[in-house]
Nucleic acid binder design. Sequence first.
DNA 1: TGGCTATCTGAAAGCGCTTTCAAAAAACGC
DNA 2: GCGTTTTTTGAAAGCGCTTTCAGATAGCCA
Lengths: 358, 358
Amino acid sequence: MRIEAAQGGEPISVLDLPGMILEPPSRGPVARDVARRAGVSTATVSRVLNGSAGVRADKREAVMRAAQDLGFVANGAARALSTRRFMAVGAVVPNIENEAFVRVLSSFQERLRQAGYTLVAANAGYDLDDELREATFLLERGVDGLMLVGDIHHPDLHARIASTGIPMVQTFSLSQQRPCVGFDNAASAARAANYLMDLGHRRIGVISGLRKDNDRGGARVIGIAQALAARGLSLAPEHDIEISYGIGGGRDGFRQMLAGGPPPTAIICGTDQIAFGAMIEARARGLAIPGDLSVVGHNDSDFAPFLDPPLTTIRIHSAEIGHAAGDHLIARIQGKPVVRLTEIDAELILRASTAPPR
Amino acid sequence: MRIEAAQGGEPISVLDLPGMILEPPSRGPVARDVARRAGVSTATVSRVLNGSAGVRADKREAVMRAAQDLGFVANGAARALSTRRFMAVGAVVPNIENEAFVRVLSSFQERLRQAGYTLVAANAGYDLDDELREATFLLERGVDGLMLVGDIHHPDLHARIASTGIPMVQTFSLSQQRPCVGFDNAASAARAANYLMDLGHRRIGVISGLRKDNDRGGARVIGIAQALAARGLSLAPEHDIEISYGIGGGRDGFRQMLAGGPPPTAIICGTDQIAFGAMIEARARGLAIPGDLSVVGHNDSDFAPFLDPPLTTIRIHSAEIGHAAGDHLIARIQGKPVVRLTEIDAELILRASTAPPR
DNA sequence: TGGCTATCTGAAAGCGCTTTCAAAAAACGC
DNA sequence: GCGTTTTTTGAAAGCGCTTTCAGATAGCCA
């Protein structure tokens, strides 16, 4: 790592840098300056800049020009204070680096942006206390709406949101009580299990990410167990593995599973990364896929179709979830009617990593 | 997709939902309410809530309790207006779904968060006009600092930032003029080229992402071309491929390259995804890696060590870049001295996808 | 041109917090 | 116990914008 001062000397003081302010950051020109320059009042400046009708063309232009000349940038805080709308929406996701959440955030933001809102995203790290802290942080910032993931939260969270009066929407899983956009995690995982059973598999294993405080992960395993039970089978404890996310986690998980006794003929993994890791480990052990082991993933990541063999996976329509959540929240903020529950079904994508057992 | 109304009827009106407000969203209790309840003035409330010294313990507690009881959440806009600090920092990245940028944003946010700042991230989509628009949007929101990626921007962007007087930092590439945290893209790519030449390769190809308005991608190709030239070799036009990002892009890119004439014995790819795609295509054509083709990627993505063979790649220390950029900006915001340029070297990670040519 | 209506415009009052400044209270010294 | 010093406290003045409301202008018709 190289750290270099400006002219080969010691670190430059911040004072030497352009655009550097110390105390009360004196931001640029304000509406009053524009008004003076255009020979009107601040009221008119406001009207022009907000596009409200009823300003004579000549004044309008004078204001526009003055604002342009001065490089005027309105002070968002003042505007927010005055209008009592921040034009910002918050989102707290378990892991901001997780592909599925990134895709949701991205499409969510797309919609917000179109409606003139800013997205402020925060990371909860699969910890309820952290989630509460981050959400509170956003509420203090004054967001006009809030997106959360899942149904399990800190007991105080909903009260705190309610006390600010802003709308929230839950994503990724469905809820009986709250507005939500998501899918039935148990049902979609069960669908995968049923598919595997239809192929003839009897010993099916699960490798999921951490399930603590994670209703999605938990629901998936429950869904699978129920689907098995419905056909008189069961999920053996040694075939029910919980690991941390990632390719490495998948390898470890499958290794653990093999250590537990007779291997399953098929596994369902919590993410495609986990599935990838499990496939690597399986191959290292000389197991053929799908001959000796069928593998199902979750998410339909970019690389899933390119694995060898291409991975059968449950595709979560992240972009649609993000769009729907964004539309929902904006409608609520704008006081329009909305539906409480939007289900966006996950879909089982069949590829070559699954086949009947030998 | 299922859209379900609350009780099997038509969509519920927003009015039926809890936490729903129409006109001037009347947010919860304000400082005045807390003051009244605690029997003090708003000045004291402010002092307590901001932890400033000089408030008697009993009053402090009364205020705390009142705030707690009321579920008071301070209005960030009012605070920002008053302190003239928004406690938010903006970042505009080319693609918010790109792994490298996500990692930088994540570590950047980590630092901001520790200092009490909020990250507001926006997406420029590799388009200069969009970048200007998003940056302006953030400036209007009142961010206290701004992080940008790369050295190529809309001609008006720097003027606009300067007119607000907030500090900015550029990441991923170095700059002669502006504060920056990054690395020398040309040099690190050249290092990969030299390594390949040291192995004995003479025909080296490049598959990069789109290079328009992307100084990093461009610099890398230039660095490679210069390294080749320094040893009397050259980058053949048919071995210089530009494609859109992604695994599919990598496959297409390598296919194009093969169509252009005699294949190179080694390629350097703009991302690991591209490298992955190229490897798939190479294998489909019966080329052995690294026997017939050595492959180098960029970024050291999660999956790079798990490819078959494990991918040699240029690791970009995204987390460090994000941390350094965050620290830099916070220091500037707080008026502390900073260094203008921080170089965080990319590193060539040797794995099994590279070997001497046959 | 005068009278009346329809448009425009600006003064002023907030929005909810921070912060200064002076007054009030507490602590101290003798 | 009284004057003085040190803490605490509250009143009030912003921060920069939006928005109401009433007054000023312009437009229209006879």
